[in-house]
Write a protein that binds this DNA or RNA. Structure first.
Lengths: 244, 244
DNA sequence: CGAGATGTTGAGCTGACTCAACGGGAGTGG
DNA sequence: CCACTCCCGTTGAGTCAGCTCAACATCTCG
């Protein structure tokens, strides 16, 4: 499984070895994006689709008054800008969190591929719908839950997503975020993030450090967050695979 | 323009009279949904796509503790459940706000149509991406703006969307919502909604009553909300039309 | 025409914010 | 390799937007 995109989509639909090969070949044109650099800025009209291969990125918007909202996290296997096939311009920006590696895939290559491999097209569609479902759940999270539960919920989600692409073992996975970025995600202040993190640590639920998060008791955290993973639509199959 | 879907999509792509006719014919199987009735419930696996023809509906989720979050408003021309082509089950519910009229379109009919009319397929895709963009902006709204600005922003958005499908003239349009529903949308209490509404009224910005909203000074309200309509991606053309 | 749903008002409470200061660690340049 | 610096995390204290609880008014619709 060289390609995280294959890993992600394989859990949704069977791919022939040929499909998988087509996916792998997308990743020839690779580039590294340094921590904090914008991959895409609001108003851009990118000519390629960027596929995140390694590291994290986020979608975000800046507000006129200097506030910032992080709209989504992108992890390996995620497409950064599937919007370019339809929209004139990007309506938000995308930034690398930690150093990241992306593949730049020309628009036309994706169009050709989806035409040739219908399973792939469905896979992309599924991926877009999952992103949308996550966005809806974030809205619920920010609008309805208190800051502690909110953060717990986010951690559960990221754990599941990372596990789904094979990047979480036990409760531990990379979480290359500052407390300020967590704050901009959850709609609270960095100071409050700090206090809630300490509370979770004190309760023995998590450990944080060196850009990694360890959840000591996943069930307990899910309980605390009233986390119901159905919105991630991952249940369709547990083991990623490529058809023999 | 008998069909609000045509009205919506026509502003995005040119349709031949034939395309438009195909769209109109979708609406043969029509049904009325009474105020407060669920069109679709979480967990359902609908076999038809529902197109809202008249009235409003909302997407929403209930939480275990009895809270509720409204995720989106659907207005005439919107598709309720494009997810069914990919997902096993609905991950949220959809409810009529006021009495509404919908067309039930069999899955297969939509698939056939999009295959035959590529402009239509692109139109649906565009519509899905706009819904996603709106969802992102709601996240920004709830996470970053205070309750007054938040409500002002929502009103600006709904005014633009209603105008886009020809249902707002001047600043007046149907807004079939209770204060409680506004509260569940904005993530504040009904009591606080009431107070913010009064403030807007006192400032001469709006009038509300009989399920209608009038914005007396659209520019002023947009200013107050720091409303930037670009996320709605409606700018592509101002006048809906069907190619001659 | 009656009753439950919706809207309005007041008063006190609290989760999260602001402001301010300090400590520690990671990267950088000399 | 060390010193410096800047970013990041931590802590404390006072404040406030929005909440809760409670009561009452009004509307809508069956």
């Amino acid at each position: 499984m060289t390609n995280p995109l294959t890993a992600k989509l394989a859990s949704f639909a069977d791919f022939t070895p040929e499909d998988a090969k087509a996916l792998d070949q997308l990743c020839r044109d690779t580039k590294t994006v340094r921590n904090g650099r914008d991959l895409i800025r609001i108003g851009d009209r990118p000519e390629q689709v960027f596929l995140l291969l390694d590291g994290w990125a986020c979608r975000y918007k800046d507000l006129p008054d200097g506030k910032r909202q992080i709209l989504a996290y992108l992890i390996p296997g995620d497409l950064c800008d599937p919007h370019i096939f339809i929209f004139e311009e990007m309506d938000h920006s995308i930034r690398a969190l930690g150093d990241a590696r992306v593949a730049a895939i020309p628009k036309q290559v994706v169009l050709d591929l989806t035409e040739r491999y219908p399973a792939l097209a469905r896979g992309f569609w599924w991926s877009a719908l999952v992103d949308e479902a996550i966005s809806r759940e974030w809205l619920v999270n920010v609008a309805q839950r208190d800051s502690y539960t909110r953060m717990a919920h986010l951690f559960c989600e990221m754990w599941m997503r990372m596990r789904h692409v094979g990047l979480a073992h036990d409760g531990t996975f990379a979480l290359p975020l500052t407390q300020e970025q967590l704050a901009d995600t959850l709609g609270i202040t960095p100071i409050h993030v700090n206090r809630m993190l300490q509370r979770m640590r004190a309760e023995g639920l998590i450990s944080v450090g060196r850009r990694r998060l360890t959840i000591h008791d996943v069930d307990a955290l899910q309980e605390a967050a009233a986390f119901d993973p159905r919105y991630l639509h991952l249940e369709q199959r547990t083991e990623p695979r490529v058809a023999a």
